[in-house]
Design a protein around this nucleic acid. Structure first.
Lengths: 195, 195
DNA sequence: GATTGTATTGAACGCGCGTTCAGATAATCT
DNA sequence: AGATTATCTGAACGCGCGTTCAATACAATC
């Protein structure tokens, strides 16, 4: 009994990360065992160590990949014309992107404490990078006299917290469409930092 | 070797809850062992079971106590005159209350998944109760023509998410005083739901 | 100062944990 | 077809987990 028929590195690797992401988000990093992840994939626990050096690195890779995707997706987003359009773009992008990856978003906000100092710092830096992009929009808008936030740094954190909160209550097929959710939040954000 | 000198139920009980709260918040419920909690208090693990039937109930009691305190404290808060003053009171109260209990707030948002269905439902009901109190203020303000939120339910969730976010970045002795933080957030909230 | 009740110890229970590794099999290459 | 390499198994390692419980030491009461 050893190698399975049809087994491939390119298949098992992603399946492990997928199972780990789902299980970590659902039950918490510490509550999920390597054996559970392996069972989900249909493999023995030892096989996981062909794909990750240890459990913490598995978590780190998930968080890192999520943050990289987030920033890359925002970079690829068509930029609006002027600070107001850019701000609207950010609001709608953040909601849309996060609603498509609820598990990764939850992990990124809840399991940072399970990382060692170096890994923690790496993820934190990426998060700050993302936050700075919003702050830049707010500062530009302020300079142009289009926006007025009492403190652009705090305002960007407040806006992101508010937008990320959508993930805690939004349910597919519920009362509100994604489009409508975007409209509602854009209305509130726009007014909150209006000049 | 058994009972320690100077040991009392009224002392050990709170100390266990305090240690559990701190450790759960810091490392996560699943990552903390009963033996760690006991060591923090200075007793053996077995002694914890004089104060809780099991580990999950210990967590539940912490969350329940926090939610009860939150609602009781808001009830005891002097009510402002009219929806706008009440909203301002809510914003400042929520920030102040949460900044005084960062561990309990973090636990309440991160460790609900470790509760069984009944315990989970109990905490969720308390949370909805609290959220409804804010929504009522918004609806009253809307009815009086003083406020205009596109959706009062969503607006209340958005405001709470935004305010609770303060706990993730606020540091004592940092750039901003608590008073100033309250001012900044009240400015944003007021404008976000302004008529 | 003896008695009673409360608070605690310390050992034990079975179990699952993260991780390692020699051996076995399937896929691939020559 | 044979050799090589990539992939996976299954067993094992020592360890710490949540929980129970008889024994015991202190505090409170009489």
């Amino acid at each position: 009994m050893a190698r399975k028929t049809g087994s491939h590195s390119e298949i098992t690797g992603p399946r492990i990360r997928g199972a780990a992401l789902r299980l970590f988000a659902r039950h918490g990093f510490a509550a999920v065992s390597m054996r559970q992840i392996a069972a989900e994939v249909g493999v023995q626990a030892g096989a996981l160590y062909l794909y990750t050096p240890d459990k913490e690195t598995l978590l780190f890779d998930l968080l890192k990949a999520h943050m990289d995707e987030l920033i890359a997706a925002w970079e690829a987003e068509p930029k609006g014309d002027g600070p107001l359009a850019r701000l609207e773009g950010f609001v709608r992008f953040h909601i849309r992107f996060n609603l498509e990856r609820p598990d990764a978003v939850f992990l990124s906000y809840m399991e940072l404490r399970n990382l060692g100092p170096d890994n923690f710092a790496a993820i934190e830096a990426l998060r700050r990078d993302y936050e700075t992009r919003l702050e830049t929009i707010l500062r530009d808008g302020q300079a142009a006299g289009l926006l007025a936030a009492p403190d652009t740094k705090i305002a960007s954190l407040a806006i992101i917290a508010m937008l990320t909160g959508v993930n805690t209550w939004y349910r597919e097929g519920g009362r509100l469409s994604r489009q409508r959710v975007g409209d509602i939040y854009w209305d509130m954000v726009r007014k909150a930092v209006a000049a």
